[in-house]
């Protein structure tokens, strides 16, 4: 297994790890059965993500993608944050081993799920967005590499 230095750095020194007590949006994706769960907490003011924290159960790549995702979305508007793709997450980490690409998809989904929760709380009409329902293995074949 070859992780980049960036992945190892974010794994050993995760940024923004923890929870936000009075979060405006919380999203959890993944499934313990598959070995990955990401929980994303967002503090949002005037549609801008002013703080983001995460908790993750998973491998080194899962922790690193969560960590970098919080860095990528902090300070962005929710519209901008929704445009942070798994590809951007992978690039920011200087790449991921092919078997670990699904972790980047999970990070993208965690951000989307937290924003969806925020919008629901604020009365927006939210269509059911993507959420990992378990090990469909879709992410193995469907990756935006």
């Amino acid at each position: 297994m070859m992780y980049s230095e960036k992945v190892m750095d974010h794994f050993m020194n995760p940024r923004n790890m923890g929870e936000i007590e009075d979060a405006d949006g919380v999203g959890q994706v993944g499934n313990a059965k598959c070995g990955d769960i990401m929980k994303m907490y967002l503090k949002i003011e005037n549609d801008v993500i002013v703080d983001a924290k995460f908790k993750t159960f998973g491998c080194g790549a899962a922790v690193a993608t969560s960590s970098i995702a919080t860095e990528l979305i902090k300070g962005k508007t929710i519209e901008e944050a929704l445009k942070v793709t798994n590809k951007a997450v992978v690039e920011a980490l200087d790449g991921l081993p092919p078997a670990k690409l699904h972790c980047s998809v999970l990070a993208e989904e965690a951000v989307a799920a937290a924003i969806e929760d925020y919008r629901r709380r604020h009365g927006y009409d939210v269509e059911n967005s993507q959420q990992c329902p378990g090990c469909c293995r879709k992410c193995e074949s469907d990756l935006d590499e």
Binding site: P14, M17, E19, Q28, A32, I37, M38, K39, K55, T56, F57, V63
Partner: peptide, 8 residues
């Protein structure tokens, strides 16, 4: 465990 949503 501090990092784990399952533990939380």
């Amino acid at each position: 465990r501090q990092m784990s949503p399952l533990y939380e």
